[in-house]
Computed example of a mutant assay.
Amino acid sequence: MLQASPRQPRQRSNPMADHRTPLIRDCWYVAGLSSEVGRHLLERTLLGTSVVMYRTEEGQPVILNNRCLHRSFPLSRGRLEGNDVVCGYHGMVYAPTGQCVGMPSLANAPGHACVDSYPVIEKAPFIWVWMGDKSKAGRGTVPDTSWLDQPEWKTTGGSFNFHTNYVAMHENLLDQTHFSILHAKTGIGTPAYVRSDLDVRAEGDRVIILRALKNSPPPPVYAVPMKLEGRNVDRFSDARFESPAIHIAHARIVNLQPRGDEAREYRVNITHAFTPESQNSLHYWWFNSRDFHLTDEDIDTYIYQSHKAAYQEDVEALTWIQELLDREPGPVEELSFGPDRPGILCRKTLLRLAQAEQGRIDARQL
């Protein structure tokens, strides 16, 4: 009796990035928050590489490869002396450039010993790092998040570290069809918003969604802090895949019938920054910034708790998906539909960037 052969996944006619696509390294990623890095040695894994972070006596952030070149002792387990890191095993001393400048057992420092030192830019609240080809680390390419450090905006935020890949994270943030389903209990979306007109466009390496929903009740995450419960508003929003490292969304809520001293418009900026820890694990920082009721601490608490709960739902969903993918020996077959277009554009962009980078790496190895 003939046995049916195992079903083989169909080859995608329009290939997209997935959890197996090589990580893009030629990009400014968030290494950490400015508040995290000080006069101590902080270890973190970024894009599969263990690094050590600290500040010089002058306050400049430094990021070095965490592995001592002598016997692979983690430099984060050593100590700071002035601006230099001293390995806790044999005492090799590394300057902020990564150059070894001293070794107790040798009269002269070994000039050929130099650990990788990564380009760093600090723009509060972030410390950005470039883990790829240093010749491509143009200073003008750091994403603009200036509202996070401006007094006319009030910002709350948090972070997660979890098991997923950054391709899935980007698609999740561009996928607004899940808002009223996955986040039904946390009040992120409404059925009317999901069905509203959607304008999707690609601009270079960016993917942008524009939506407008008029004369409709806002979801609780907007209605409660804006004190517009039970009233209709005009809602204009966009969501942007800015780079492999960051996603930014803006919302403008128009109060159709202001009462007393109520504002006519309310604005919210939502910032999602994430850096692969490894191929399928992620550092994730989120921020909600508003231009209204800046001194109301109850609103701070509500926004923090409601958004943290919603993003926890995303974290759980993406972790469950990744756990299933981890059990698959090869590529999986996925169905896509019309509303998936933003995520598809993003995944195609990520694949194109990854393939171009891999091509450059392969060329250098010839």
Score class of each variant (00 low, 15 high):
D18I: 08
D296T: 09
T21F: 00
G132Y: 00
G102Y: 12
G91T: 05
G158F: 04
L335N: 04
P191R: 13
N280K: 06
C27P: 00
R77M: 06
G48P: 04
Q355W: 15
P339C: 01
V93W: 00
L294G: 00
L33R: 15
I121Q: 14
I321A: 03
Q358R: 15
T177N: 02
T56R: 07
K123Q: 14
Y311S: 09
Y302D: 01
P9S: 03
R240L: 09
A245Q: 06
I181W: 09
A309M: 03
W128S: 03
L294K: 05
T56S: 04
L256S: 01
Q322P: 07
R77Y: 04
V254N: 09
M226S: 14
A263E: 11
A113R: 10
S159C: 14
R341L: 15
W320V: 12
H19R: 04
S50E: 14
E43S: 11
R252E: 14
R327P: 00
N165A: 05
N255V: 03
Y311P: 08
D144P: 11
R231L: 10
A184S: 11
I209Q: 14
M226W: 00
S159F: 05
R139C: 09
L80S: 04
T164Y: 03
N14D: 09
L41M: 06
C68A: 08
M131I: 11
W286R: 06
C68D: 06
D133E: 15
D18C: 04
G230C: 03
V268A: 09
Y94F: 15
S243H: 08
T45Q: 11
F179Q: 11
Q322E: 10
L80R: 05
V101T: 15
V86E: 04
F126R: 01
A168Q: 13
Y89L: 12
N165H: 05
Q11W: 13
I253C: 07
R44G: 05
Q8W: 02
A202Q: 15
G187T: 06
V129F: 10
G138V: 15
C346F: 02
D116R: 15
G158L: 12
G187K: 12
P74T: 13
S281R: 08
E57S: 12
S34N: 02
K136P: 00
A137P: 12
A212M: 09
L353Q: 12
V315T: 10
N14Q: 12
V85C: 08
T56C: 02
T156E: 13
L213H: 12
R211F: 10
S306Y: 07
R12E: 09
E357N: 06
W147M: 10
S196P: 00
V224I: 15
E262I: 04
R39L: 07
N66D: 14
F126K: 02
D326M: 06
I248F: 12
L47T: 01
R267K: 14
I303L: 15
G98P: 03
I246A: 13
N280D: 07
R195D: 15
M131P: 02
L256M: 01
Y302R: 03
P329R: 11
R25A: 05
I246Q: 15
Y266G: 02
V85I: 13
F126Q: 01
A137L: 11
V101C: 09
W128T: 09
G88A: 13
L80Y: 02
T97I: 12
R12N: 10
L47D: 01
